[in-house]
């Protein structure tokens, strides 16, 4: 997994905090503080625009706070619920704007992913990986992103993408295999 450098796990007393925030939105602050960076990085990766990411993140927390009374713990952390809202907000943004979807990946994280997947010159591999990622379909790209850049569990990814956990696992392995094959083919050429 790629080291994010910030906490991605749930807060220790998260369910109590959620219950308190349901009663009074001012108690939402610890949750907002804890998840802000995670959600910002996720939205920024999909937008590559700081101001736009800040706007979309505000929208995400507005929506989350508005729908908090409907939130029920079903074994999936609160962070996954926020990611699902964020993912939908980003989708909505691109649908309204009608532009090409952006995936802005950090070189450091890509290098870590490539080091796992292949040997050889990293700079070349990065360029190759970018081209290979373009060949993936949207679902495959999202699975790779959530698994390797967001460090989400299969269960969380299933919740965020509204898929079955077994389907997510299958998708992840197939996508990695696809990338491996593409690298192999490129080496042989």
């Amino acid at each position: 997994m790629i080291n994010q450098g910030f906490s991605t796990g749930p807060l220790p007393n998260e369910q109590q905090l959620i219950a308190a925030a349901k009663r009074d939105f001012r108690h939402f602050e610890p949750l907002y503080d804890h998840y802000y960076e995670q959600i910002f990085r996720f939205v920024y990766r999909r937008s590559d625009d700081e101001a736009l990411a800040a706007d979309l993140v505000s929208q995400v927390f507005f929506k989350a706070l508005g729908a908090l009374t409907n939130y029920q713990y079903t074994g999936v952390p609160f962070g996954a619920w926020l990611h699902r809202i964020a993912s939908n907000e980003v989708k909505k943004h691109y649908r309204n704007k009608g532009t090409k979807k952006i995936f802005s990946l950090e070189e450091r994280q890509v290098k870590e992913l490539i080091a796992v997947e292949a040997d050889g010159d990293l700079e070349d591999k990065i360029a190759q990986l970018v081209n290979f990622l373009k060949e993936l379909d949207e679902e495959e790209l999202h699975v790779v992103e959530l698994r390797f850049f967001e460090e989400k569990s299969f269960k969380e990814i299933a919740y965020i993408l509204d898929m079955k956990e077994s389907a997510v696992k299958m998708r992840t392995y197939r996508t990695l295999e696809k990338l491996r094959q593409l690298f192999k083919l490129n080496v042989n050429d």
């Binding site: 503080d33 910002f40 800040a54 090409k100 979807k101 952006i102 790209l141």
Partner: peptide, 28 residues
Amino acid sequence: MTKYDIRIRRESFSKGRIERHKDFKKFS
């Protein structure tokens, strides 16, 4: 023509830069 625009960022987004946008008082 591909469906995505995949970009590689040389610099990672710093925590301090994100913190500038984080303001619960304003948000609430």
